[in-house]
Write a protein that binds this DNA or RNA. Structure first.
Lengths: 197, 197
DNA sequence: ACCTGAACACCGTTCAAGT
DNA sequence: ACCTGAACACCGTTCAAGT
């Protein structure tokens, strides 16, 4: 399953560079988002740009290496709460999902893109988290604690959208929680408005 | 009020270039989103890049010139439905809002940014639309057809988020309507989930 | 194995020189 | 009043040359 993307090198000097690049990438992504300059990451690491590309052939590979563990933790968290009350389990998990997707500016777009890009590196580790989330939603539907006329992928898309819009207005730190609460209400409410043409 | 940004030039040759640039900008933005290359717009117009900058000093000024009329129409549409049944009026208007915000790839980010950027050019004309939308929401709250414990700006943010996520998965054209229906349900549902820490 | 940086192609933005 | 494009600074990505 996770024959995933980039591997930490064996040779000591290369491993030092790998770790250095990852650390600086985290700093730069934190400051400027996932679209930040790769050359700046290499520059701050005191390494040639070619070295960055050797270790991380794509931008996504770099992002994936940074988030791999976090995504895996989210996947496990979803499995762990499977026997708990499904509604609160789901609510808590979605809250963490939003926080995780908002780790870097621009990350929600990548996370949402998982829905259709099962191929690339980032998405191998991210997909595990996604599937676990979808199962959590389906589980709550089977337990009839949320309405069952919704696609689980729609729910995840909407929550990802909340993560995105929360990043657009960083001065209002409470917005994502308020919007999630609203959506959670919708999940328990009966269907009134029909999508008309 | 709308001493807004860019003006159509008086001189015939300049006006020709202005219109030409706008037309090609529409094409290029349609193909590549609002982050498309400005040089390509100038190139396709057969004009120097300096001419583009002379007419449209910023990227936003170009986007604004393209969307000005549409935004104004949205504002007027909100005023027009003020005496109609508030819930359906709101629902219809939000549907159009999503469609408008999704005109170009990347536009929802600009539209959502209005919330905090009352200054720039794009936002002068966009702000009228926003305020009209906020009033429509407040109006429905006063009529007690939607719950009144929500900030109108939160509602607009969430609907903007739907426009965004809809663009991320263009192969599912029905998603925005489904998500909006879900949110509309939430607007009429009582508050259950509280944002906990 | 790994590192380097020059090379290439591209872009945003400004501004001196032209009409 | 308007147009032009060279100039500058920056970036992503590749790859021949080095260790």
């Amino acid at each position: 399953m996770s024959a995933t993307g980039v591997r930490r090198p064996a040779r000591a000097d290369a491993r030092r560079n790998y770790d250095l690049l990852l650390g600086k990438a985290h700093d730069v992504f934190t400051e400027h988002g996932t679209d930040a300059s790769l050359e700046e990451i290499a520059r701050r690491s005191g390494l040639g740009i070619g070295t960055l590309y050797r270790h991380f052939p794509t931008r996504d590979a770099l992002v994936e290496a940074l988030l791999r563990d976090r995504f895996e933790a989210m996947r496990q968290a979803a499995e762990r709460v499977r026997d708990e009350p499904p509604y609160e389990a789901l609510a808590q998990w979605l809250r963490k999902f939003i926080a995780g997707a908002a780790t870097y500016q621009g990350l929600p777009a990548s996370v949402v893109a998982i829905m259709r890009q099962p191929g690339s590196e980032l998405y191998a580790s991210c997909h595990g988290m996604r599937d676990a989330g979808l199962e959590l939603i389906a589980h709550a539907q089977q337990a009839h604690v949320i309405r069952d006329d919704l696609k689980p992928t729609d729910v995840l898309a909407l929550v990802g959208a909340i993560a995105w819009v929360g990043q657009q207005t960083p001065e209002d730190a409470g917005q994502p929680d308020r919007l999630l609460a609203l959506v959670l209400d919708a999940l328990t409410a009966p269907m009134k408005a029909r999508p008309t043409a």
